[in-house]
Design a protein around this nucleic acid. Sequence first.
DNA 1: CGGTCTATTGAGACTTATCAATACACGTGG
DNA 2: CCACGTGTATTGATAAGTCTCAATAGACCG
Lengths: 228, 228
Amino acid sequence: MNRTLLLNERKKTLFVETRLTSSMDMATMNRLMECATFANCYPRDVVFRQGDPATHFYSVLSGYVRLYRQNSEGREADIRVCGPGESFADDLVFGGDTYEYHAQAADKAMLARYDLSKVRHVANSDGGLLARAIAGSLSGQLQETMDCIANDRLNTAVQRVALYLLEQCEGQESSGSFRLAFQKSLLAGKLGLAPEALSRAFATLKELGVQVHGRIIEIEDMDALRRL
Amino acid sequence: MNRTLLLNERKKTLFVETRLTSSMDMATMNRLMECATFANCYPRDVVFRQGDPATHFYSVLSGYVRLYRQNSEGREADIRVCGPGESFADDLVFGGDTYEYHAQAADKAMLARYDLSKVRHVANSDGGLLARAIAGSLSGQLQETMDCIANDRLNTAVQRVALYLLEQCEGQESSGSFRLAFQKSLLAGKLGLAPEALSRAFATLKELGVQVHGRIIEIEDMDALRRL
DNA sequence: CGGTCTATTGAGACTTATCAATACACGTGG
DNA sequence: CCACGTGTATTGATAAGTCTCAATAGACCG
């Protein structure tokens, strides 16, 4: 078994574990696989640019991809950070022919790349199985995106950071710790903050028993965060 | 022809003109119609509450519905304002069994009310036609919602208001005027602002030739707004 | 015409962005 | 293994933007 074969097996495994494919039957998954190619990205690689004609949608197999928009002066705002198992630009399968945001690898990343016209063809001729899977993915994304708006509008920086920390400690009781999945500057963008604001939020949370050592976060009292 | 029949004809017309049904074939539309009942709402009527078990999704036939979330202290943040032709809670067809936000009529409104379990049944047995239509609707909503995040994070209050005014003047050249579709307090919420902030934004825009008389807005120089 | 709801305006406080300077982390090569 | 350099993170000072509260003005409906 050579290296390439091993790599392909790994790709296939990651492909199967995607949110889009997880509840798919085998036949549909194979049809989708036929539309896919794979791409390796290095940090800061551009996947596509806002305004480009849309040719593919993507699933993240490993690493992270940052979706963001730029205004006329070049200032950037993150819209979403996609991690392993998540897909992006799949909102273009059922309408839209232009990418409406930039996509950039935020880390070494492996992506599955689905040809949009092939996917559309399959989705129109498979009895609706693929359409349902994509609809499921879109539902999840829509819910997350609405959550994000509500979170931005309802909570302050410290509250948003605390909430994020709690989400990452899912399952741990009273106290917990974990390692940030990506750089703080990216986390800041994901939370709609400038990096300095994230630092200051961590500084505030230190008083509530949150210790930050590089990417390692330790939380002494999760209830203290929940009370914010 | 009696009053009821007339009303039903009107309902049917509005039903057909919905974004969800607009590109649907007749058979699918009829199957969807079988899942529907209709409801009339008065201003401030609650359609459903955050946390309620999800039983229906909705299309707005006339009027406006406000989707919002509440934090623990009771402060509210609007997530979306749905107008004629738009649907909401359709993200629950393919997953989710609880409403994650409040829905409240913002005006006298007529709604089509789709039984979720019936819709799910149809969507699983019609060869994918309904699933594709819903996926199309979800795509549009996801795109709008992502736009909203980028807009919130990238633009100031004045810029967001200016952008909204320009959107409403779609098609008009250099100067334009129109009537706000709903109250200013609702517009403020939609734009992620307190009502006072919307007032102040209008005050600022007055210097750029925007005149506000109640709900009537007149814009002398649309390019001046575009330059913001 | 009066009452009620909605919108505007002012003053102040709070939150976050921005800019600039410093400190820290990490990978590289000596 | 340490020193170095680059990129990332923190901290401080300031400015900008928005919210909140309170008071007034205006719009709309019966």
